[in-house]
Deep mutational scan, measured.
Amino acid sequence: LVRYRTISKIPQITLNFVDLKGDPFLASPTSDREIIAPKIKERTHNVTEKVTQVLSLGADVLPEYKLQAPRIHRWTILHYSPFKAVWDWLILLLVIYTAVFTPYSAAFLLKETEEGPPATECGYACQPLAVVDLIVDIMFIVDILINFRTTYVNANEEVVSHPGRIAVHYFKGWFLIDMVAAIPFDLLIFGSGSEELIGLLKTARLLRLVRVARKLDRYSEYGAAVLFLLMCTFALIAHWLACIWYAIGNMEQPHMDSRIGWLHNLGDQIGKPYNSSGLGGPSIKDKYVTALYFTFSSLTSVGFGNVSPNTNSEKIFSICVMLIGSLMYASIFGNVSAIIQRLYSGTARYHTQMLRVREFIRFHQIPNPLRQRLEEYFQHAWSYTNGIDMNAVLKGFPECLQADICLHLNRSLLQHCKPFRGATKGCLRALAMKFKTTHAPPGDTLVHAGDLLTALYFISRGSIEILRGDVVVAILGKNDIFGEPLNLYARPGKSNGDVRALTYCDLHKIHR
């Protein structure tokens, strides 16, 4: 019993810090008490220290592992850092350059016999395009090294910054494609005289377009951006097909006994025919423009016929181009109408809503002055909100995010209106959640004399007048207030005048 009563005193000691020596009952000389009392004092002292730490809000209350900052290894790049964003855009520009100039170089340097010394005699450094290609190869190699040090988000939505895990993730992902696209074939085969082989191998750079397509997928929600990307894709495919079309004609031209190829026909049409040795002929500019003209006309199913396939190889390629053109029509131009419709969806919704308003007016036989006010209010409210119901949009977000959005939407009023000066951010967040926005066209009466005042109004834009009878008592403008002081009276009061809008007004109100 003594032991039980001794232990039962522990909660009292913990909360009230009572010393055991003052209790005459606990001072009985028993061996059990002498053993338990020192333990009680020690526990009391420890609990006292913990309570003191909690009340003082000291940093040592938290466990040590929670006080440590997340460790980022040296030379690790955050995937959302500004440097990584700028670097990704730079790589994107280099990939676009590669997609345009690599097929052009591979096709127009394929057994090209233009006048001038061969590239091997001039030297590697004197070729501007080769120098640019070398810079692109170096940048792609540097990009691989950067990807080995860039964080990523795993399946659990955690940012991984450990170098080993980053390397394994990159090896399992895009490393092989990036490595093949970054191989400097110019340096590996330079001086061997195989410019045709170098041009063909350099087309491996186009593998990076797969990554670019995935990154550009984030802009699919913007109709104008999608339309622009589709047109660029169409032009890029036409450019690639033009390079292939020229390569076919250029390879067949020296081996044909009869002059029936499209390059021969082009030379005869523009007065620059090929001679018996295969030299001469149109310039590279004429060849490229004509090839691009043929691919565009074939892809769009126009086909004027002034550039036509004559050999079997050219006919087979033309059939493939027609098939590609039909697929592009289905996948690209078939979506253009939907994209344009999405661009004008706001206008369509406006006309639909206006039609419903006019049908309501016609069905209920609203008189002319009231009908005009109804239409003007709808037009003004639509121009202010673009038909978007803010309350319906915010309803799907958590309250903390709703408060931040409301604070942002009402920031101008909260910053410049005098009653809100000096208020804490928590108070402003709470008030912003209570605001209701209303609009009024010129001549609209917001409050009639004798109406119950259940709200306090803040003028965000425009001006109003307060009338008693036919006498203008006051004219209020931006950041002015009218209405009933909230919670100042037990019952809502009545208006002693009319409140009429002089201009288009936007008002925020808080109800009782």
Rank of each mutant, 00 (worst) to 15 (best):
L109S: 15
D217E: 09
A330H: 15
F397E: 01
R165K: 14
E221K: 08
L227M: 13
I77P: 01
R356D: 13
E221R: 13
P309I: 01
G305A: 14
F175G: 05
V100I: 10
I91G: 01
A213C: 09
K172Q: 11
G396P: 04
F171Q: 01
A182G: 13
S81E: 06
S313Y: 06
V142D: 01
N265M: 14
C126D: 01
L109P: 01
G281E: 01
R259M: 03
L414W: 09
K202Q: 01
T438A: 11
A238P: 01
T438R: 08
R373G: 02
I340R: 03
N154Q: 08
M390C: 10
Y288P: 01
Y104R: 01
Y80V: 09
Y377E: 15
I366K: 01
S308N: 05
N310K: 02
G249W: 03
V307E: 01
R362G: 03
T76S: 04
D88H: 01
C232F: 09
V210R: 14
Q402L: 03
F333V: 04
H73Q: 09
G271I: 01
G271H: 05
I96P: 01
H380P: 01
M256I: 15
I138V: 07
G346K: 15
H73V: 05
C427G: 03
N306F: 01
G261D: 03
G193W: 11
V226N: 09
N310M: 01
T311R: 01
F83D: 03
K418I: 05
K202S: 03
G346C: 13
I332R: 03
T438E: 08
S345K: 03
C406V: 05
P398T: 03
L394D: 01
E376S: 12
H439L: 06
I138N: 03
F190N: 12
I248L: 03
H79A: 01
I388N: 06
Q341V: 07
V100Y: 01
R211C: 01
L230I: 10
L94R: 01
G334P: 04
T76G: 01
N391F: 10
M251W: 13
S276C: 04
D137C: 02
V136R: 11
P441E: 06
N265K: 14
E375S: 04
L188F: 13
F378G: 04
V100E: 01
Y350F: 06
Y350E: 01
S313Q: 04
R356Y: 15
L323S: 03
E121V: 15
A224L: 14
S258A: 09
L279G: 14
P103H: 01
Y377F: 05
Y377S: 13
V131R: 01
L206F: 01
V136G: 08
W87D: 04
G249S: 01
L370C: 03
S276V: 04
D88G: 01
L67Q: 05
P117V: 06
Y219M: 10
L129N: 05
